[in-house]
Nucleic acid binder design. Structure first.
Length: 276
DNA sequence: CCTTGAACCTGCGGGC
DNA sequence: TGCCCGCAGGTTCAAG
């Protein structure tokens, strides 16, 4: 479910409410999600204060005193919701984190594609799920030149390449379609066929759509809510995603409108008139 | 190395 | 109403 803007929004919401707070208890209600949930979770986390909260790609990281970091991924349907008081667990609440000042953080994930792990803070970049990750799209390590060189020789469709987290992180199914629309690039193009000039449109397009989505609190389609339960509203600003048959903004063509195709088993939306 | 497809799960809406 | 199908913000792994 969540892509970079949703994960970033959740991190910011959690940071506001949890930094400086201390976990007092963790309840693990099932043994595994996508991977086993560490049995030592309660033992390692209880009594520890949260020093900071950061994001890497679509992973949320709660850095605890004592050098341990709680690493979470929400998969397709995961939610992290923070509430006051001791609520009775709902369906699919897999882990409950309680703080000593009466907050409860619920990890709810119907499809269970999410994951939770504990890892030494100073070795995080070596974690098996983090070590192959590419550059953060909103940071300097990502640029038209770097993207262009990474795409050289790739036969894969550019839309699929954008979603490859080794190339650039955080872009998922929605924002890949949206960014390609902004850059006026056809999602089915061979990744290796993009010119440097096209990469120079694509990088700012990715950054623009991600920044705008963060500013809107993310996109709420089905499962996603912010840490305080509020909905994001970037779904109201989609240019192409989910808009099959509609005319794209500013499009003058009379026929067809936005097209839906399937790439790598996922839906892609684009305007054949504007994206070449 | 690369690319493709299946697998992991639950829930929802549409068609019959 | 019930059943079957397709579909859903992701990632990993095996096979070719």
């Amino acid at each position: 479910m969540p892509e970079l803007p949703e994960v970033e929004t959740i991190c910011r919401g959690l940071a506001k409410a949890l930094i400086g707070k201390t976990f007092c208890r963790v309840t693990r209600r099932r043994k595994d999600l996508r991977f086993p949930i560490p049995a030592r979770l309660d033992k390692e986390v209880a009594g520890r204060t949260i020093l900071s909260i950061t994001r890497r790609a679509k992973y949320i990281m709660l850095h605890l005193e004592g050098g341990m970091t709680l690493l979470l991924h929400l998969g397709m349907s995961g939610r992290l919701v923070l509430e006051r008081g001791h609520k009775t667990p709902e369906k699919h609440d897999h882990i409950l984190f309680y703080t000593s000042c009466g907050q409860c953080l619920r990890f709810n994930d119907p499809r269970r594609f999410g994951m939770v792990d504990l890892y030494a803070t100073d070795k995080l970049e070596q974690h098996r799920l983090l070590r192959h990750l590419g550059p953060e799209p909103l940071q300097k390590g990502f640029s038209p030149r770097i993207l262009h060189s990474a795409l050289q020789g790739k036969k894969q469709a550019i839309k699929l390449a954008l979603m490859d987290q080794r190339l650039v992180v955080g872009v998922g199914n929605i924002y890949a379609s949206e960014a390609l629309f902004l850059a006026r690039i056809n999602p089915a193009r061979d990744a290796g066929s993009l010119s440097h000039a096209e990469c120079a449109r694509l990088v700012p397009a990715i950054r623009r759509v991600l920044r705008k989505a963060i500013a809107a609190g993310g996109s709420s389609l089905r499962d996603y809510v912010q840490a305080d339960g509020a909905l994001g509203h970037f779904q109201n600003s989609f240019a192409v995603y989910g808009r099959t048959g509609e005319r794209c903004r500013g499009c003058t063509c009379k026929t067809g409108g936005i097209r839906r195709i399937v790439q790598g088993g996922r839906a892609t939306f684009y305007c054949p008139h504007r994206q070449k």
